Amino acid sequence: MERLADALDGINRGLARGVRWIVVAMVLIQFAIVIGRYVFGVNSIAAQESVLYLHAAFFMLAGGYTLLVDKHVRVDVFYAHLSPRAKRRIDIFGHLFLLMPSMLALLYWSWPSVRNSWKILEGPMSVGGIEAVFLMKSLIPAFCVLVMLQSVAILIRLLRSPGTP
């Protein structure tokens, strides 16, 4: 089971190594947009939308990695002061009854929109924009799957660790 958890971790680690370059591209494109607009008086809707697409891709594809490295949002007003055993119980409960059902619901409810977007190859959000809204919408199920895979890896480790309730 540990090998399965490691393999699932590897998916998000590998993806994170590639996705981090999206931030570099995003900064460079935004810099070019600013220079183009204020120095040369040139503007491009497609270039502006590309920053939006890259931003969406970065955050949606890095969701599983964020969970892996434990940098996700956590309300630890009480959690920080609990024993390791109590933290493990809360983590197991959270993964099984909050995170997984939320991801499944998001996947279920977003799928018709994603499917329809692919069916018509949904075009740009703005006139002159990038003709690939269907690709951006595809980030939603990708996010759900990556977070659920990472959640399974974490659950495997939580349930195999000593002192599990």
Results as ranks from 00 to 15, higher is better:
44 S>E: 13
44 S>G: 13
45 I>R: 08
45 I>K: 12
45 I>H: 09
47 A>M: 15
47 A>F: 15
47 A>W: 12
48 Q>K: 00
49 E>L: 11
49 E>S: 10
49 E>V: 04
51 V>S: 06
54 L>H: 07
56 A>N: 07
57 A>Q: 01
57 A>S: 02
58 F>D: 06
59 F>G: 01
60 M>S: 01
60 M>E: 07
60 M>D: 01
62 A>L: 15
62 A>R: 08
62 A>P: 05
63 G>C: 11
65 Y>C: 00
67 L>Q: 12
68 L>H: 12
68 L>Y: 13
70 D>K: 15
70 D>Q: 15
71 K>V: 09
72 H>M: 09
72 H>S: 09
73 V>W: 07
75 V>A: 12
75 V>P: 10
76 D>K: 04
76 D>M: 10
76 D>I: 05
76 D>A: 01
79 Y>D: 13
79 Y>I: 04
80 A>G: 11
81 H>P: 08
83 S>M: 09
83 S>V: 00
84 P>A: 02
85 R>N: 06
85 R>L: 06
86 A>H: 12
87 K>Y: 02
87 K>G: 01
90 I>S: 11
92 I>M: 08
94 G>M: 04
100 M>E: 12
101 P>G: 08
106 L>E: 10
106 L>T: 00
107 L>D: 00
107 L>W: 04
109 W>G: 10
110 S>F: 02
111 W>E: 06
112 P>M: 01
113 S>C: 09
113 S>E: 13
115 R>K: 14
117 S>E: 12
118 W>E: 00
118 W>Q: 02
119 K>H: 15
119 K>E: 14
121 L>P: 07
121 L>K: 15
122 E>H: 00
123 G>E: 14
125 M>W: 14
127 V>Q: 14
127 V>Y: 14
127 V>K: 12
127 V>W: 12
128 G>K: 13
129 G>L: 11
133 V>Q: 15
134 F>I: 03
134 F>Q: 05
137 K>Q: 10
138 S>E: 07
139 L>M: 09
140 I>E: 02
141 P>M: 05
142 A>V: 00
143 F>R: 00
145 V>A: 01
